[in-house]
Amino acid sequence: MIDNNISAMCKPAPGEAGKTGDWRDMRPVIDHTKCTPYVKNKPACFLCWLYCPEGVIRDTIPVEIDLDYCKGCGICAEECPMGAIAMVAEGKQDG
């Protein structure tokens, strides 16, 4: 493909800064047995979805986190009212 642009115009794509999951020191690990939508088996809570600055948490049952792009800020763990998300050092076993 030849670049015919005469000025700088960008197209959208995920991963502009690469796989930002690489930025993490700690990764969020969900204990679904404590997670309200999972326990009740219906849409509920989803505060982790609401507060994630990256939009990488899916408000599904079970809740899913896209670890390719999660930067590991830890807001979800901090805001989870049930304490269902733990931040675990990268390289260590889950939970």
């Binding site: 700088a8 115009m9 960008c10 197209k11 959208p12």
Partner: peptide
């Protein structure tokens, strides 16, 4: 066709 025009390069 959303474009970001004249960003940092």
């Amino acid at each position: 066709e959303p474009r970001n025009i004249n960003p940092v390069i």
